[in-house]
Write a protein that binds this DNA or RNA. Structure first.
Lengths: 238, 238
DNA sequence: CGCTTGCTGACATGGACCTGAAGGGCCAGA
DNA sequence: TCTGGCCCTTCAGGTCCATGTCAGCAAGCG
């Protein structure tokens, strides 16, 4: 069976989105998986067709990320088999930019969307949310913290008075991280890894800088420092 | 049964239009289906008469696109059978330019409209909207964003003061894409692919150019840039 | 009081994005 | 057929902004 990680019931009790990632490329798979896990999704990673089908037989997924070029066969088979048994689990196809026919075949075989490699992880997240929302499942509608309303699926924050806050990519990443795991202490290193997906080690106080910038925009009181460990956001209604 | 794809309830909760495409030509079918799916319709594709009738028996469609020349019989049979059982589902016939008699027979048998191959996908979309509107079903009446009223089915935008905005084809394509998925972030690549139906990869900043022009016509604030990902339109009333 | 840890303003840099302008294609009308 | 106008696409220059880094200061903690 494939690698399993993430999700569980840590996220304030919300059901996580179960994702099956079918991808043979180690690097890309790593990046996608770690990113998705950080977003609070539960990810199984299958590196070939056999594995993928074993997973599908065992678990009911909320979303499938499907690379079409696999070592032991074409990913289309998986998709077709799925649809043949009237399984409507949303599927997002991952293809290289020159595999146009793959894309078309994929959509026609019942895929819901596709992404062209190399893709931005932010865009992946947007598509995941779009598809998940379309199926009405697993959306986290809103997180309310203090006078902030945070919409993870829309990458949006508003204040109670309706004011929209403009956040940069990194700022949003930090805020999302903290708000999804609200009431829990989030380690500095965890945040750092969320910012610099995999590898790219950084050696300065970037996290502190972004927390600072966030506090300026959100209001000082929203992010609490836990000395020596990290940060946390507390929502009063628990 | 036929291939099924697309639609669901993605368009802000509006029911999608269920289309049955009856067409044996692979290429044409691909083009029509992918285009329609992109417009948010739900498409079943039957490649022969048997298949088509199986679909019709199982599902209540909002529209049927019917090629008359099929491998296992004449599409007219399908249409006649349909009307014989007083099914009023709108039907658009697809014929080659030299099949004049087909067209006449088709209309006499109760078709609502016809298209001559090869046809422009934009024209197809227009006819689909026209027929759908005529039947009062499935039209997205209006999308209101800021002081704009957008009528997707009529390819029309007005400002609150009644002023009518003139948009070019590409400008409209971008606006439609963004307004139909309002409040969601739409990737640049997604918009690009909506402009250049599949494949025709473009390597310049066309999308940016059209966004720029749109902003000039619509007002700066209407389209928001999400750096590194794409664009979005936000409608305040949610 | 001294040490560690965290905060924040400033700044250089690169990249993402915007937009005006130019050239070409297509179509309608002369 | 020619012409003008509209639209599309590309390109280049410019602007704006996100980012990472650092240094100096503040705050906790022994």
């Amino acid at each position: 069976m494939a690698e399993r990680e993430g999700g569980s019931d840590e996220l304030g009790g919300d059901e996580p989105l179960r994702i099956l990632l079918v991808e043979d490329d180690q690097t890309l798979g790593d990046a996608v998986k770690t990113h998705a896990v950080r977003q609070g999704h539960a990810v199984d990673w299958a590196k070939d067709q056999d594995n993928a089908e074993a997973c599908l037989a065992a678990v009911q997924y909320g979303l499938i990320l499907l690379d079409l070029r696999l070592p032991d066969g074409h990913g289309l088979n998986i998709l077709k088999a799925l649809r043949a048994r009237r399984d409507k689990t949303p599927v997002i196809i991952l293809t290289a930019h020159d595999q146009v026919s793959d894309r078309i075949e994929g959509l026609n075989a019942g895929a819901d969307d596709y992404l062209v490699k190399p893709f931005d992880l932010g865009e992946l997240e947007a598509r995941i949310h779009a598809v998940a929302r379309r199926y009405g499942a697993h959306q986290v509608p809103m997180i309310e913290i203090g006078d902030l309303q945070i919409f993870p699926s829309e990458r949006r924050v508003t204040r109670s008075n309706g004011e929209q806050l403009a956040l940069s990519a990194r700022e949003w990443a930090v805020l999302e991280m903290l708000s999804v795991r609200r009431n829990a202490i989030v380690g500095k290193s965890q945040i750092e890894e969320a910012l610099y997906s995999f590898g790219a080690e950084i050696e300065s106080n970037t996290v502190e800088v972004y927390v600072s910038r966030l506090r300026r925009k959100l209001g000082r009181a929203t992010i609490e420092t836990v000395r020596g460990i990290g940060y946390r956001m507390v929502s009063d209604e628990r």
